[in-house]
Design a protein around this nucleic acid. Structure first.
Length: 551
RNA sequence: UGGGGCGUCGCCAAGUGGCAAGGCACUGGGUUUUGAUCUCAGUAUUCGUAGGUUCGAAUCCUACCGCCCCAGCCA
């Protein structure tokens, strides 16, 4: 009997194992987790992994999950990011318990904890300059040495720390440090900074504070204050764990959170760090954080990625401690898989040429129809479209010298107009520059809905009646970077074709008022941009192309 | 050369001493009015390497090799 969990939606992994152990021993009967973004940038799919883990696991174990904005550094943090973060989490499909929390709400308590540590002789005010501090810290192989200010009396430390708080000192003049061990092989334990002076306005606390706690000090203690049982973070914090535990151990709190680290997400052909994404925006390589090419949640939303696809993706990639790069194809697979079920079908021609049916009366037209959701057995809704003698077809669906295995139109061949009749190509006309302008065909009036007898049909192509079609702009996207491991390169190569704009596409009339996502048959999934328009034209984004297998 | 981690199929990833799950990608067959979907089948004699323990090792031991992180008053 295998121990493997056969329920495919619940995958076993080391974090689950840890939580289950802690529940089994009675250590943490009620699970509490948190998602702790810093409001100094937008959320991306790497955050989505963390969101799915924290909210997903806590829900799964009947626990709670809080949203805590980790705003300990006023530089770059602001309310716009807070609002975007909240909206993105909701969009992804998660809800946090109670009101959002802010590390800045705990500034008073954290300050009291700091005084507590000073009184216990476990923290001191240091006046080494940053450069001196670096020297005193030692190196990876050499122990550091004690700061000359390390042995001040508690009373003096308290006085100075209160002066720091009351704004009597300039930035950089003093710093509060934990008194741990300058000879520790773990650099994080070499008397780390707990508070620094920053005469900056904080977007929430205004000018109330001019000293701000550092990540290590505030994060562990806020977790403890919130009663967090399992505090997930990424691998680079692994050797901060002793420090995390040190603060919790030496300050009086009611809870003992456990920090567990996992590998952050890397996606092929893109970058997933705030710093690099910021650079892309600042340099104008993309329009903004919501550019459909961006791996931000804003970007993916605009691009038309269904949130459920992102959740399934996060589920599929698993959780481990191995540095890895996940293939973008897996994300695209989840997007297609969802859209295949939910996106209504419609025909649209991106690069139009005319197809004239010579034996179809010019004044005649008829209404044809096809299933709207062919792969959704619960729906038999249909969509209708107009057939006439004058149509648009895709330029790439006609070839003067058809290559081998070409399953489309060429002179002397029959092809099915999707949802309509079969047509036989008789000839074509060209422009002055030699480009094909019009394809001339005759149709088989008995071929509607039946397999024609006596001749071979070379494939099915999409089309739209010229007089019902309307012109719109369609944007095609490709990955932002050429290299698979772009996230690990200092100067990855921007993909020159990351966006291609097609300005005169001919679409089915039903798309005029379109909202949401569609499958443009044989092409891919597309969505209408709610706001953008270009020269009065509506804009559609290609979410993802159809899987293209050429057998 | 200090400390902390990690190495299982092209990409992820289960596996915790009993004879290598699964997904993506790929390849071949079938269905199909989307070269889509769906469907069937195939794809690691081997788990970084080398030794050892054991009836039996990806799992235990030893040594080695490779990769990532840490010397911010960032998170």
């Amino acid at each position: 009997m295998s121990k493997r969990n056969t329920n495919c939606s619940i995958k076993s992994h080391f974090i689950r194992t840890a939580i289950e152990e802690d529940k089994a021993t009675g250590l943490t009967p009620h699970i509490v987790m948190r998602f702790p973004p810093e409001p100094n940038g937008y959320l991306h799919i790497g955050h989505a992994k963390s969101i799915c883990l924290n909210f997903g696991l806590s829900k799964n174990y009947g626990g709670k999950c809080y949203l805590r904005l980790d705003d300990t550094n006023p530089t770059g943090e602001n309310i716009t990011y807070v609002e975007a973060i909240k909206a993105n989490i909701k969009w992804l499909g998660f809800e946090w318990d109670n009101e959002p929390r802010y590390t800045s709400d705990y500034f008073g308590k954290l300050y009291a904890f700091a005084e507590q540590l000073i009184e216990k002789g476990l923290a001191f005010v240091c006046e080494l300059t940053p450069a001196q501090m670096r020297d005193y810290r030692g190196s990876l192989t050499a122990a550091g040495s004690n700061s000359p200010w390390r042995d001040r009396s508690s009373a003096e430390n308290l006085t100075l720390f209160r002066e720091m708080k009351s704004g009597q000192h300039a930035e950089g003049r003093y710093v509060l440090r934990a008194k741990i061990d300058m000879a520790s092989p773990n650099m994080n334990m070499r008397d780390p900074v707990m508070y620094r002076i920053l005469h900056q306005n904080h977007y929430r606390t205004g000018d109330e504070w001019c000293i701000y706690p550092t990540y290590d000090f505030s994060h562990s203690l806020c977790d403890a204050l919130d009663g967090v049982t399992h505090s997930l973070c990424s691998l680079e914090f692994e050797d901060h764990r002793p420090l995390y535990d040190w603060f919790v151990q030496h300050v009086h709190t009611a809870h003992n959170p456990r920090q567990i680290e996992f590998a952050r997400l890397h996606l092929s052909h893109t970058v997933l760090s705030k710093r690099k994404l910021k650079k892309l925006v600042a340099s104008g390589k993309v329009c903004d954080w919501s550019d459909p090419r961006m791996p931000t949640l804003e970007g993916m939303k605009r691009r038309g990625y269904p949130p459920v696809a992102i959740r399934r993706f996060c589920d599929a990639i698993g959780v481990a401690k191995t540095d890895s790069i996940v293939d973008l194809a897996l994300l695209e697979h989840e997007v297609r898989s969802e859209l295949n079920k939910s996106a209504p079908r419609v025909m649209a021609v991106l690069d139009p040429i005319r197809l004239v049916i010579t034996n179809y009366p010019p004044e005649q037209e008829e209404e044809l129809s096809m299933p709207k959701y062919p792969n959704e057995c619960n729906s038999n809704e249909r969509r209708s479209f107009t057939f006439t003698h004058d149509l648009y077809i895709e330029r790439s669906d006609f070839h003067r010298d058809p290559p081998a295995k070409y399953k489309r139109l060429a002179v002397g061949r029959w092809v099915r107009l999707r949802g309509g009749y079969t047509v036989h190509c008789d000839d074509y006309t060209t422009d002055d520059d030699g480009r094909v302008r019009e394809v001339h065909c005759h149709y088989d009036p008995h071929s509607l809905g039946v397999k024609p007898d006596g001749y071979k049909v070379h494939g099915v192509i999409h089309w739209v009646a010229k007089h019902t079609a309307w012109s719109a702009e369609v944007r095609l996207y490709e990955p932002l970077f050429l290299e698979e491991d772009a996230d690990f390169l200092s100067e990855p190569t921007l993909n020159p074709h990351s966006m291609r704009i097609l300005s005169d596409c001919q679409l089915d009339p039903s798309l005029k008022e379109a909202q949401g996502s569609f499958q443009f048959e044989r092409l891919g999934y597309f969505c209408a941009d709610s706001g953008l328009s270009s020269g009065g034209k509506k804009i559609f984004h290609r979410i993802v192309a159809l899987q293209a297998r050429t057998k």
